[in-house]
């Protein structure tokens, strides 16, 4: 069955892949030559091909995280040729296609590198720190039932749209992997801004920002020094404006805090 581009020629490439047995093992880069890769394949389908080869040879396949393969679940997380999610801007690893590489290319694949994201195995890292930050305050305290009618509080479209932009973070962690300080500011700011902008989230805005930032520090993420590397690599385009908003929310919270 031919692909959408019948003229696209299969490519031969060389992979250099981080292999690490488990959390405590010492990892290393291992080289795998791969032949006959179709440019229409996705990057992960290329890894599927590698894994089928390895399996048939009785070798351990390369473990990597993935699920939706549609760019929305945030599970895929490969550091490709020195960039989180690879060379294409605004693209998750699973949405990257081999047509962006050339015949003869050598491609390095590593896991996210950050103290707060320890490696489980090969390319799979532990991002549970992100969940704990959300648990610290990334919600509106409402129980099921007993809430007002959905149209009781109109929200100007411009604000709803901005809140939506912030809400699209897929929690992949590329921002952390891109940052030389391994800071999680972009991720945290996206949730803080979304909820601070919406009337429903306003009541708890002070405690939310304080608690989420505190948890971020506990988890061992680095400080933000405004390099902007995070937003440049974010696959869904979360804006640096959110970090500014987090800062002002934080200052406001501290200045007026009741928890002094």
């Amino acid at each position: 069955m031919a692909g959408s581009n019948p003229n696209a020629k299969p490519m031969d490439i060389t992979l250099k892949v981080w292999r690490q047995k488990d959390r405590n093992a010492i990892g290393q880069m291992v080289t795998y030559p791969l032949k006959g890769i179709s440019p229409d394949m996705s990057f992960l389908e290329m890894l599927d091909v590698l894994n089928e080869d390895l399996l048939l040879k009785g070798e351990d396949p390369v473990a990597f995280d993935h699920d939706c393969r549609e760019g929305i679940c945030g599970m895929c997380s490969l550091f490709i040729n020195g960039r989180p999610h690879g060379p294409e801007r605004g693209t998750t690893t699973c949405q990257l296609h081999m047509r962006h590489f050339k015949d003869g290319d050598t491609i390095t694949i590593e896991p996210w590198r950050a103290a707060a994201f320890p490696v489980h195995k090969d390319l799979v890292v532990d991002r549970s720190a992100f969940d704990r930050i959300q648990q610290a305050g990334g919600y509106v305290s409402v129980n099921t039932g007993g809430v007002p009618d959905a149209n009781a509080i109109p929200i100007p479209k411009s604000i709803a749209d901005k809140a939506f932009d912030a809400a699209t973070c897929i929690g992949c962690g590329a921002c952390v992997a891109a940052c030389k300080n391994a800071s999680a500011m972009l991720f945290v700011s996206a949730k803080v801004s979304q909820l601070a902008m919406l009337p429903q989230g306003k009541t708890e805005r002070k405690t939310r920002v304080e608690n989420m930032v505190a948890q971020m520090d506990i988890e061992g993420f680095g400080a933000c020094t405004n390099t902007g590397a995070c937003a440049a690599e974010c696959p869904v385009g979360i804006s640096l404006e959110n970090i500014n908003m987090l800062r002002s929310e934080f200052v406001y919270a501290k200045a007026t805090s009741e928890n002094v």
Partner: peptide, 12 residues
């Protein structure tokens, strides 16, 4: 109603 109360940003 529930989702809006949680801060789900539906289109408006």
């Amino acid at each position: 109603d529930q989702c809006v109360a949680q801060g789900v940003p539906f289109a408006r």
